[in-house]
Design a protein around this nucleic acid. Structure first.
Lengths: 168, 168
DNA sequence: CTGCAATTGAGACTCAGTCTCAATTGTTCA
DNA sequence: TGAACAATTGAGACTGAGTCTCAATTGCAG
């Protein structure tokens, strides 16, 4: 990922401008976040850092995510029915999510028409939108084809278990 | 609210059909839920029942909400950036939400065009939708007019405090 | 190189929500 | 009507994501 360094610099610039410091922990987190494509959870990030033997505390992970959300480099999203997920924001535009309730996979999509219509709805109600969040829950093609197979051991659950053990 | 009794009966029918029982606690909760219009939180409901001197435990509140969600009489929604909220479902159709991030007020809306477009998007991706959740966050007309006033003590926070004290 | 504000880690804490289990209650059937 | 028994309840322990505190550490401006 050649862009990662650029993202670190973007964050550094923001920090400086706010009178904040670019610490090694913050840089490491940004590098990690921007070198993967997937949506992630805070604990999952914590876990990955431990795996790489980069020691960063839970508190710092959350604090850094908060800063990144403030800069707009990371977005907090609801997926499915659970707690928060995060996704990094690169130049590319806003998108929404199709979430498979069987396997947890996420398909991103963007639809200009949908966005435009939302703007119209807001205008009609004299509401000034700043952000929106649309998830469509359902069943993805692969799961539908597989039919009612017993729940596969899924990635999310495995991560949770791993994170729990770490916590000790 | 003359409809409330009808809702209790609807729930009773569902329970019977599942071999479950209509207890006084369940009936009281349904009556409470369907005699208010607003979105509510589980703890808020618990609090209201205590206020009315109807003793119902936290566990029962959550268990009953779960049943009501299963019947489709109540819907679980994300509003703003927090935990869950619930809303009762009467005959009327699905709707989405405009959520004011300043005062927490919620405007419901329904737009057939939006819904139709979503169906098309799903079809194109071979995704079988079962449900969706759209919130548009922003600033409502009243708050915009008031400008940048210091945060008013809001309803949500008050309820949380009250609920916390109860918990003891 | 120094000084100091910003930052960190460890772990206590919060809070919504879940689970357990003994005691209670609604319903079915005689 | 009443016995029998499964479903339900309440109290409180527990969980897990996220927040807070504070002493020790670190980045950076001068």
């Amino acid at each position: 990922m050649p862009h990662v360094q650029k993202e670190v610099e973007r964050f550094a610039a923001f920090l400086q401008q706010q009178g904040l410091k670019l610490t090694s922990e913050r840089a490491a987190l940004v590098r990690e976040i921007f070198s993967t494509h997937y949506h992630f959870e805070a604990d999952e990030l914590l876990f990955k850092m431990k795996e790489k033997a980069v020691k960063i505390s839970r508190a710092t992970v959350y604090r850094t995510l908060e800063l990144l959300v403030k800069t707009g480099m990371v977005r907090r999203v609801h997926l499915g029915e659970d707690h928060y997920h995060y996704e990094h924001v690169t130049g590319n535009s806003h998108h929404d999510h199709l979430v498979c309730t069987t396997c947890g996979s996420v398909i991103e999509f963007h639809d200009a028409w949908l966005e435009e219509r939302q703007r119209e709805i807001c205008k009609k109600r004299h509401f000034t939108p700043t952000f929106h969040n649309l998830q469509i829950l359902g069943v993805c093609e692969a799961c539908k084809r597989k039919g009612e197979q017993p729940d596969a051991p899924d990635r999310v659950k495995m991560i949770q278990v791993a994170a729990m053990q770490l916590r000790k």
